[in-house]
């Protein structure tokens, strides 16, 4: 079958790490199998003969959807910060960040 090399357990561990998901050893095994079959399904498309078929970049052939540079109302700050678990000095208070912004 054409297509990318089969997904490894290390790939799944890496993707889980990027998504800040902590997976147990058992879950890694389970999801490696499940995710691999999802990708296999997508790989079926790669096995089709698509010579002469135009690539579809977007479901609708639309370009240049723009809005004018005109201000719209913002949300009320009290309401916005009221949704947050922690607030200080009118700012969202978040756990300590390790490292600079990427």
């Amino acid at each position: 079958m054409a297509g990318p090399a089969r997904l490894t357990r290390e790939d799944v561990a890496h993707v889980a790490d990027l998504a800040r998901l902590h997976l147990s050893e058992g879950e890694l095994d389970l999801f490696t199998g499940q995710l691999a079959s999802v990708l296999d399904h997508a790989a079926d498309v790669a096995s089709l003969d698509l010579a002469g078929v135009e690539p579809t970049a977007h479901a609708m052939a639309v370009t240049n959807v723009l809005r004018l540079d005109e201000p719209a109302p913002c949300l009320d700050r009290g309401e916005v910060l009221g949704q947050a678990p922690s607030v200080e000095d009118h700012r969202f208070r978040v756990p300590r960040i390790l490292g600079e912004a990427p």
Partner: peptide, 25 residues
């Protein structure tokens, strides 16, 4: 006058979290 993808004002130095909407949040 406004942000890249929403109509919130693009202004430096305003009170924190006053120029926000569902999009930029």
């Amino acid at each position: 006058a406004t942000k890249l993808f929403c109509g919130c004002p693009n202004v430096f130095g305003d009170e924190p979290n006053t120029n926000v909407c569902p999009n930029c949040l």
